[in-house]
């Protein structure tokens, strides 16, 4: 197995060896092995019932699994349905994973802030009072940091005007954008997307794909993208894994350069690859 990714010299981030998942005694997945390179956008395609979603859930540790899996601890997950919490505003949804986040230089900032003040906040004035002010300052610093981060992600997903709305007031595409921002905000190493645009109409779907590519250009995370739509898989990904009974029967690399324009969908290489993948899907039983 090559250790160098299709993108220049990336190292391996996820290794999966002999992964198995079973529900109620019957195997959904058996003996699946592959690796994912750092910063790669990997699409996983397959027939419905081939266990695409179970693969992501098992890798994320949300359902029990067998086999050897080497994966970073912090991951983000975007689901198809119930993607955002309907009881939180867009702002609170995106901040939901940041509760414990702290400013990386909080101590320094707090010291600098306290030094700026005169009485009664002198750093030299030791005692409970100084400790109290310091604790309060640290809290404010972390809070402001989290708020800034949330704001940045709201702008990233173009929801600036909807920050205080609830998901029930948004369109399907906007909700999926909230979900992606919520998964991105804690800055995980890997993002899992389980048919995130599966419930959207085809126009919205195209717009969301172009828009996901933009986010990918900005954030450049490792992404695992599950879909049953071959065109979507080719348009977005660097590599496509075909998931079937008995592991991964085929593996396609996608040669198109980034950033990608919508027009490559009509390119002859694109259409040929699409045909190739579709035939393989039908073949694998």
């Amino acid at each position: 197995m090559p250790t160098q990714g299709p993108r220049t010299g990336e190292s391996i981030q996820i290794t999966v060896e002999g992964l198995g998942v079973s529900y109620d005694g019957h195997d959904v997945l058996r003996d699946v092995s592959f690796s994912v390179y750092r910063g790669e956008l990997l699409a996983i395609v397959g027939k419905s019932g081939s266990g695409k979603s179970s693969l992501l859930l098992a890798l994320a540790g949300l359902i029990p699994r067998l086999g050897e899996v080497d994966i970073p601890g912090d991951i983000g997950f975007v689901f198809q349905n119930y993607a955002a919490f309907p009881w939180m505003t867009v702002r609170d949804n995106i901040g939901a994973g940041l509760r414990r986040l702290r400013h990386p230089k909080r101590e320094k900032v707090a010291d600098a802030l306290l030094r700026l003040h005169r009485e009664p906040l002198r750093v030299e004035a030791a005692g409970y009072r100084q400790k109290l002010w310091r604790t309060l300052a640290l809290r404010r610093i972390d809070h402001a940091y989290r708020r800034r981060l949330v704001k940045w992600h709201i702008d990233l997903v173009d929801l600036t005007d909807h920050a205080d709305k609830y998901p029930g007031q948004l369109s399907g595409g906007q909700v999926q954008r909230v979900a992606l921002a919520r998964a991105l905000a804690p800055n995980p190493l890997v993002i899992f997307l389980d048919e995130p645009f599966g419930a959207l109409d085809s126009y919205t779907r195209d717009r969301m794909q172009a828009w996901l590519l933009n986010v990918y250009e900005v954030e450049h995370k490792t992404m695992l993208f599950v879909t049953h739509n071959v065109e979507e898989a080719i348009f977005l990904s660097d590599r496509i894994l075909l998931l079937g009974q008995g592991g991964i029967p085929a593996d396609f690399s996608v040669p198109f350069k980034r950033p990608r324009e919508n027009s490559i969908r009509y390119h002859s290489d694109f259409v040929r690859l699409k045909q190739q993948v579709a035939e393989q899907i039908i073949k694998c039983q």
Partner: peptide, 17 residues
């Protein structure tokens, strides 16, 4: 819905939160 619980787990919400 299980998805909400799964989302909470990937967002590291535990206990009282």
């Amino acid at each position: 819905p299980r998805t909400f619980i799964w989302s909470a787990r990937t967002l590291r919400l535990h206990g009282l939160a």
